[in-house]
């Protein structure tokens, strides 16, 4: 029986002084290694990356997301919480227009990415800038290398060879904290990896194109506690280059990883604010009940 080596668990430096997020996007390609960087929890947020104005989503007659306005900032983790069926997944999938794939889904309101309406962008370009990690790890049935390389390859006729892609693949796998575990078996089928490794591969795939926003839909719900800890650690490391929106069911997780928290209930955005405020001094009665575990 092959037992997976436990991935190295790095310590989160909670007490380290917060590093202020850079005011501009890091230049593509060269940026400081994030592994040693402090977890700048509650640091000053970077510039606004995405703006949601009066966003509504309908499935036929059913309004799954109702008039939600939010902003998503660079260097900040926004945790979306709320009971099942309140529209978290729908909201997330709308941000990179994946809801358009659902027949009968309609959207109202505006979503801006760096000031541009996402409807004005090419949908393929938008999804490269606003990447997604799904609830179930869903690597492609191909090798580990090809999973990441596929994301990197442009749609163009001329396809870059392995030698061109290899450093980029390595970089993405390193940033996803998976490199050390897979560097000797890049050609092994991705579906042979453990669930936690598969999910980190999906993260590597998603961040390979250096998106500006990373959407994560309950990325740990299918994983064991150890893999969950590794991914939470990873979120802390990735946040300095990215805006992250994470949907979670798990209040403790929202508290651990979220800088801002948005609480949704039946499609409404009930409360949105810094994590401490939502958890320690919620304004709305519903939020208070939910974070104290009264319902949901």
């Amino acid at each position: 029986m092959i037992t997976e080596q436990p991935p190295p668990i790095r310590k989160i430096l909670v007490d380290a002084p917060p590093t202020v997020a850079p005011g501009i996007a890091p230049p593509a390609g060269g940026h400081a290694a994030t592994s040693g960087a402090a977890h700048h929890r509650r640091g000053e947020a970077g510039p606004e990356r995405m703006t949601l104005q009066g966003l509504s989503v309908f499935y036929g007659e059913n309004e799954a997301v109702k008039q939600v306005s939010l902003s998503i900032r660079l260097g900040e983790v926004l945790a979306l919480i709320g009971p099942s069926g309140c529209g978290k997944t729908t909201l997330l999938r709308t941000l990179n227009r994946l809801t358009e794939l659902t027949a009968g889904a309609q959207r109202g309101g505006t979503i801006l990415l760096d000031g541009t309406d996402v409807d004005a962008l090419e949908v393929t370009a938008l999804r490269r800038r606003v990447a997604m990690v799904f609830q179930q790890p869903n690597p492609f049935p191909m090798s580990i290398f090809d999973n990441v390389a596929y994301a990197l390859r442009e749609q163009s006729r001329k396809r870059p060879g392995r030698s061109v892609l290899a450093p980029l693949v390595e970089d993405a796998l390193r940033r996803a904290g998976l490199w050390d575990e897979v560097k000797d078996k890049l050609d092994a089928p991705a579906l042979r990896l453990s669930g936690g490794q598969q999910q980190r591969l999906c993260i590597a795939r998603a961040i390979a194109t250096r998106p500006e926003v990373l959407l994560m839909d309950e990325p740990c719900s299918a994983l064991d506690p150890r893999s969950t800890a590794v991914i939470e650690q990873l979120i802390g490391e990735l946040r300095s280059d990215l805006a992250i929106v994470i949907v979670t069911h798990n209040m403790q997780q929202a508290r651990r990883v979220g800088d801002k928290v948005a609480f949704m209930y039946l499609g409404d955005l009930v409360e949105y604010g810094p994590a401490e405020q939502i958890f320690d001094a919620p304004q709305a009665q519903r939020t208070r009940d939910y974070v104290r575990g009264v319902f949901g």
């Binding site: 999804r127 490269r128 049935p141 390859r153």
Partner: peptide, 19 residues
């Protein structure tokens, strides 16, 4: 699996051919 490919900004044709 298809959704993962669309989520990476791939077209339907690319998804069929490459995945």
């Amino acid at each position: 699996v298809r959704e993962a490919s669309y989520g990476l900004g791939k077209t339907k044709i690319a998804t069929i051919r490459r995945v």
